[in-house]
Amino acid sequence: MDYDVQYDKIYRYCYYKVKDKNLAEEITQETFLHFLDSGYREQGKSLQYLYTIARNLCVDHFRRNTNNKQILLNEEPEEPADSGFEEEFGIKSDLQKAMSVLSEEDREILLLKYANDEKDTVICGLFGISRFSLYRRLHRLQKLLRKHLIVYSS
């Protein structure tokens, strides 16, 4: 496993959860420290383990500070420095509207699958679903996003 790559993925995942750069980075680092302290023995599930730790730490954070939960529900994420593609094609805002229709779990699946480029086995393991179920879900999400994108863009 490459630390460098996994750090970015876990950080992106945490950022998506907490919507705060510093907090996301803090949780990411805590995730890795928990992982290293756990004495995990390699058995091909280190990524699932990392994501599970990160997810639990985010939940812990929200439990400690319920106000942050409101932020998660209401606030839009910080704008990244460069968002040329979507602005250029006018997709991003429509896409974000379309994605707000999806459930939390569906959005998480999209993040893992496309933004973090995770293998299907990792996603299936995290959500406890079969590959077939994942394919069906992705297909349904694609259709749903397309449908809402057409509605919002028109």
Binding site: Q29, E86, L95, M99
Partner: peptide, 17 residues
């Protein structure tokens, strides 16, 4: 659509990595 989703989840660069 895939690229747009990737961009939608883009996070600011981590500072202490």
């Amino acid at each position: 659509l895939k690229m747009a989703i990737c961009r939608a989840y883009e996070a600011p660069l981590p500072g202490r990595k």
